[in-house]
Design a protein around this nucleic acid. Structure first.
Lengths: 196, 196, 196, 196
DNA sequence: TATGAATGAGTTTTCATTCAT
DNA sequence: AATGAATGAAAACTCATTCAT
């Protein structure tokens, strides 16, 4: 049991290191040696848990998706939950995620780095953003007709993506805060001049 | 003269190749050899025009900034020009830039790839976005008080950044179109439910 | 008993896989992992049956030697058996061996790959060819004086070795067939003696 | 000029080292590092002259083929040259080649090592042996009808291939000498024809 | 300017082998 | 006997950079 745990820990450590380093440095600028060093393992050991470096991308993307799925999107479709609470859930989780490590969101970073040169990951990226688009569309559907809700969700997701980048660049959190404010206003249909 | 022109051409060719390749593949995934091959030059020749690879980042960023400065932001502060024309100028230039090559905007790609690992470029990135923020704030100042204009400009720039990424990922241009629509509405103070 | 059998089976499986893979891919190009995968075992398990990779060479060579010893050379010295039958025995066994898997004869392949870099196996190789040389010399001794018989046997073994290679390269069996034809002729003395 | 010569020398040194080491150790057991060390160059420098390791196989095979073509097969079709001289030319060249370095003939070694795992080189191997087969057939055509000449040439080439291996294994040259003797006898028709 | 050649350091990946379980 | 995990060493190959010509 100790052994099983220990080995599982190494596996998780590797994936966790990969996640962090790729988020901070990008995929191509993160070497297997970096990850190994970060785990106190040898390079060769890494290949006991993956079969090629690209596997780490998949695993990292899936883990970020799972994080938001479990913490937000699995809860958001609950009819009982008031819209405000849903938005809080979303943004509180996001803020926790962004605060935990610096370097913005791994998914956004990777989209820019890999979207064209590694088309095989497109589906994973689209999956991720579909989850956000559908979740936010759902939240907006009480206040708006379907098509409007979808369009506003797209605006929101775009703004959120850019906001994460801007916050990273200017080392603030005001851009993401604004997305929250705007989304709340949209739910409350108080959209005219949304300034806090 | 022929020689001077030829060398200037090589210089431009190199910078142009760098711009394109870095935009498509990212900085770390683009090698000096790639750029040299793309220009029909040898690797060593590249170093007659730059002193290290990083120079290419600077040059590329400056050229994108110059492109938008000359084509938009130098014209936008003209009191004669109606707001609608200014917005058209902005988005037409942007669309032209995005259409010219695929791969989204070089600046956004690089922000994500380099923001943390190469802090020396932060200023350049911030410069670039300041230009956009100030330009759009200016456009919004006729319709809104200063602080509101600034806030809405930040929303707009964030949304635009995310929109470029989303359009790249889904191979459309609808996200950026929406930013234009929303900005027009904001200028016209018709913000309630902005759906085309 | 079940256990003993099972392990013996694994042992044989490993040696059989090694034989096949080394014959096809060469010694250095066949990894312990390849052999393990071919047996459905783990790499570590291989080391319960050998102490280092080189052991597999020895075992493979011995098994090929044993195959021809049991099927030909143990029977060939029987005074009762007519020469023609002996030759049939030899070449039928050889053809069966060559047909069973492609990739020529393991021994010949290994001689070329290892002869100089691993002098420790020289004796094994020489043993193997001595068996052939003596066997064929014996067959020729009825029709020729001892020294002539030996010389013709050497010619035959050389031609046979080259024929196996040529057949492999051109994917035929005509070269080996010719060796059989020539040997029969030599036994029947239907060939003016070519001896210096 | 000095520079051109120097660089050409490095290139030749690399190919020469590759030829020698591959002949002695086999392709898979010869590393780029081995070759680099043998030339006093860095590993990276090797890649200035080849684009992948496999290139060395091609170059080595071509150089051996060129050696025998220039020294034998370009001369052998001369009607003036007596058959005995042609055979001398062939075997003197071969002996020189075999003596120059130990380790038998590079082509034979590679056939065994690569024939199946690297089918892309089959053509090169076949080319090489075709040169020999046609040359020896030509020599035998004065003394024998075409088809017989061809068959005897095939016997001769097979025997020669095996003889090179046997000589290497037993560190003699008697096996190859026998091939010369037998071929002379065949040209002089001092051998009852062995054709099926 | 331009380039062929060279290279140290680094990249991903493989390998034979060991060992605790 | 079997194996998952680990690893030092080495494999092939790449890269940014330098320099003599």
């Amino acid at each position: 049991m100790t052994a099983r745990k220990a080995s599982a820990n190494h596996k998780n450590q590797i994936f966790e290191q990969a996640r962090q380093l790729i988020r901070l440095q990008g995929y191509h600028h993160t070497s297997i040696a970096d990850i190994a060093k970060g785990c106190g393992l040898s390079k060769a050991s890494i290949y006991h848990h993956i079969s090629e470096k690209k596997d780490l991308i998949k695993i990292a993307l899936q883990s970020v998706k799972a994080f938001f799925k479990e913490n937000c999107f699995d809860l958001i479709y609950d009819k009982q939950l008031p819209d405000q609470k849903k938005i809080d859930l979303l943004f509180d989780t996001l803020e926790q995620y962004l605060k935990e490590y610096h370097g913005g969101c791994l998914v956004h970073n990777l989209v820019h780095e890999l979207a064209d040169s590694q088309p095989e990951f497109r589906d994973l990226f689209q999956d991720y953003f579909s989850m956000w688009l559908e979740g936010i569309t759902h939240i907006l559907q009480k206040a708006h007709p379907d098509e409007t809700a979808r369009t506003l969700a797209e605006d929101t997701v775009a703004q959120l993506s850019g906001a994460i980048m801007m916050d990273r660049l200017y080392d603030t959190n005001r851009y993401v805060q604004r997305v929250r404010t705007v989304l709340v206003a949209r739910v409350l249909q108080r959209e005219t001049l949304i300034v806090a």
